[in-house]
Amino acid sequence: MSRPLPEIDEALQLDLVAYLDGELEPEQARRVEQLLYNHPAVQEEVRKLEASWDLLEELPQTQVDEQFTQSTVELVIADLTQQLQSQQQALPRQARRWWLLLALVLGVAAFATVAVLDSVWLARERHLSQQLPLLQRLEQYEEVRDIQFLEQMIQQKLVPILPPQPQDWQPRSDPLSKR
């Protein structure tokens, strides 16, 4: 009893082509072989597919001469040379960028150093200016030679208290001049 002929549709053609290319799983390949065995129409379809595929072998072999190889090599060398030149041209630009960056870093460092030194010097100057009234009368205070008397003067705020308070910026009036 002959089996019904399957329609040679796209799905079957997919399987037939994959079968010819050896790309089917063993189970699928067995199914295709069964179809080929049972249906001459499927055999004919495969024969035509194979025959047209084999005709592609008639296409001429492409020949490439030595000159073509040489010109390709020259093209690659020219490209490489151009690449190197553009890299070399980029070098001064890069160097300039590095110098600018270095100058910027040095500038920032110099500014920071000056700022720190300045603040240290200012603090010292400020301290000296605060001590100035005392220093101006130091000889006179030394002449007193009585610590109790000095302490009394401090308590009465006739002599500046040490250390000076930050808000005491202005030179004080001479306490001894009031005496």
Binding site: Q13, L14, L16, V17, K48, L49, S52, L55
Partner: peptide, 20 residues
């Protein structure tokens, strides 16, 4: 790829059939 090759081979078969 399977689909591309299947369609291509069917097209080649149809085009080359008169010659074959």
């Amino acid at each position: 790829v399977r689909s591309l090759l299947s369609r291509a081979r069917v097209t080649l078969k149809d085009v080359l059939e008169p010659y074959l």
